[in-house]
Design a protein around this nucleic acid. Sequence first.
DNA 1: CGATAAATTGAATAGGTTCAACCGAAGTGG
DNA 2: CCACTTCGGTTGAACCTATTCAATTTATCG
Lengths: 251, 251
Amino acid sequence: MQALINRLQYYAQLRTEETTKLKSLASKLELFRKNETIVRSGDPLKNAYIIEDGWAIRYHDLQDGGRQIVNFLLPGDIFDLQVFVSETADHSVQVIADVAAHEISPRSLANLFVNSSALSLAMWWSSVQEEAILREQIVRNGRRSAKRRIIHLLLELQRRLEIAQPSRGISANRQFPISQTVLADALGLTSIHVNRILGELKRQDLISIKNRLIVLRDVRALSDMIGFDCDYLDVNQQKRPKVLAGELWSG
Amino acid sequence: MQALINRLQYYAQLRTEETTKLKSLASKLELFRKNETIVRSGDPLKNAYIIEDGWAIRYHDLQDGGRQIVNFLLPGDIFDLQVFVSETADHSVQVIADVAAHEISPRSLANLFVNSSALSLAMWWSSVQEEAILREQIVRNGRRSAKRRIIHLLLELQRRLEIAQPSRGISANRQFPISQTVLADALGLTSIHVNRILGELKRQDLISIKNRLIVLRDVRALSDMIGFDCDYLDVNQQKRPKVLAGELWSG
DNA sequence: CGATAAATTGAATAGGTTCAACCGAAGTGG
DNA sequence: CCACTTCGGTTGAACCTATTCAATTTATCG
């Protein structure tokens, strides 16, 4: 549960009381292997999961047999809160690097919401931010060159990992278990073209690839290159929630 | 407030008691003219709005001076619930067809949430669906031809209007006050190219353009053409919310 | 060790962009 | 009320980014 706590901690002050409540959610830790499909489009939704470690993708199947990845699920991410509102999944979730996740029953999650206003707010916040990430994905893939898209996505992932797993250290958070096909499916490009661009970046010594892991060698240079602005990930102090919170979440 | 009620009614059963509560939200009806900017990126968020009539777009500014439209705001849509969680706007909202909107204070909205479980759930539902619309926008703009993108977006808008304004009648809901530049900014294309594709569609008699309004002349043919599936807009009966609702929203 | 998935490279092609020019309708100000 | 500006739409030609098809290499795994 540490990853989620880190993430929430990043923008909301949680008291020990609250982190304890969060930890109590962690019943069993489920393991999913690479390529496993955790949620399949059309199937009934039964539980939510909180990722502790590993990587997954959420995608939609396309008519032509392809798929469009809508976002990446990293440690600290919750999926799917939709379980409260919809009986069936409208998308699939697949593992791309072995995942350890806490299975959370809708009931226990509901209890959490009812019992802690701070956590309710934090969760809502988290979902607002997820929406911001979705919007950014739209912006990224609209009218931007392939190179920009690729770099932008890599930087986003790097930043998200840094927030959810600060303990891992910087260098560990710059290694991504993403195949070029996955990158392509996320960015609306061909894996072939992704390959060529990555080749370019390698030659410029901005990234490297070690046993199927993409490694960022110069985050600074990459950021400068595309003018990366990670505000949408860093909900900073000035943007803290309104006083109203107490009123809204009387728990 | 009727547009919002229609929309919520579409997937949740609201009792008169609840529609009354909703109607009581409607204090003053604000008017915004075409091209007016209701929310500007970076500015403080003060209120939420519920659109009664008219069209707006939500967009992000790009470094190169352009913009990416992330979605369209139609009658019955609420913006921005972010007012609860963030002090400042991370995007802008601009009017593209004169808007009449109810200004809602965060306070009154909070009261609504606290006082009615049914409405809370309905609102949450609405926000889950908004997320689905965002995801669909990602899918639409990824690895799809310009023609498909354009048609898909038009059909989505048509369906959304039908749900929020059934009273308008079918034909009125097939006329869109969208400039080709706006279409381009939403779909990540050039207005020039949009123009050429629209020309094609006009020649095939699938759409027409009357005084700056795009008119869908054959929804069926357009749908067939791209295999349009509007499930993500029609949260149908089988997907109704879980029993759990009462537990979660004890109001 | 063979089998399967991912990465790599080349050549031809296409879908969309860019630049540039022009038109028509709707406002706007004198 | 007309002249002027502005905005949105239209068209053509050259160009370029990314795709397609096809073949080859490199890893990884049972």
